[in-house]
Design a protein around this nucleic acid. Structure first.
Lengths: 151, 151
DNA sequence: CTATATAATTAAGCGGTCTTAAATAATTAG
DNA sequence: CTAATTATTTAAGACCGCTTAATTATATAG
């Protein structure tokens, strides 16, 4: 049950710390701005993937496509996303962030990362370099591309 | 507005990737198990802090203490938390995870980190070492940030 | 062409999670 | 002791987000 593996256990500890911060911030942000967690999840998804279908989004969030459609109505009202027809299959809609939606998403994310500034202050350049490399490594792997060789 | 700082911008990129994964997993997990995001936030908080008061929790989540109290009722029903009187001030309740609550929290967290296995497979020992060190560095710094202002 | 399947939407209704206001209980101040 | 304050709980009601079922529109199979 307990994994000795320092990679995994360190990661898990980090996640407990990190998610506590970021989730609390996200929950509060959502509440203040009248967004549901489904909407937040949708914004994250679209930000990363560019676009998605209605049922797609529903599946990712674990809700029916009817629920997804209704939720998207509200995001359209807010001007955060747009529905366009998929030219290849006109039954489908391509859901994507509007420019405004993209901007607001990124701004709110930065705002919720203010604690990073505090963290950064306590680090030497050497330490920041270590962390930046490690994160870049994970980003590369996640995108399934080989690590950048050198700069 | 845009920050050039590679530490910050790499961190932000990593967070977009990572939160997309972990939030989606958390939202789905919550839905499947009939937990609200407030409940999830509460479990994270208690796991990290050990215990908290009712109003405390409400504030952290951005809801009234009445709402917090009602939510805690349900977590007590589920056997995940317990209310005990604070001996120093008997108006207050000390909310903490039960053993079952603690176990379930950690199990569900591990389950939602299965993608880590995939990530790990793609890494050399050297790379894992880099990442582990970087995370450990951040964990240490995060814990350092206690009330002590000067040293 | 007709029938079937798929994607999205609309509508009705249910239950959950807030809010405010009032009640209870313990502490603190005078 | 009495009055005021603080922490929590209870109760009533509003709103939101979900579900299922029915509808519309497009695509595909025979």
């Amino acid at each position: 049950m307990a994994r000795k593996d320092p990679f995994f256990s360190t990661f898990q500890e980090w996640i407990e710390l990190f998610m506590h911060r970021s989730m609390q911030g996200t929950i509060q942000y959502a509440r203040e701005n009248g967004l549901s967690m489904s909407m937040i999840g949708t914004l994250f998804h679209l930000n990363l993937r560019g676009h998605a279908g209605v049922s797609d989004l529903g599946q990712h969030l674990g809700v029916s496509s009817a629920a997804a459609s209704q939720m998207l109505d509200r995001l359209v009202e807010e001007g955060l996303i747009e529905r366009t027809e998929d030219p290849d299959d006109r039954r489908m809609k391509k859901i994507s962030l509007t420019e405004k939606g993209c901007q607001i998403f990124r701004e709110s994310l930065s705002a919720r990362l203010r604690w990073l500034d505090e963290l950064e202050k306590g680090l030497t350049d050497q330490e920041k370099q270590t962390i930046t490399s490690a994160l870049q490594l994970m980003i590369d792997k996640a995108h399934d591309r080989s690590p950048m060789v050198k700069e």
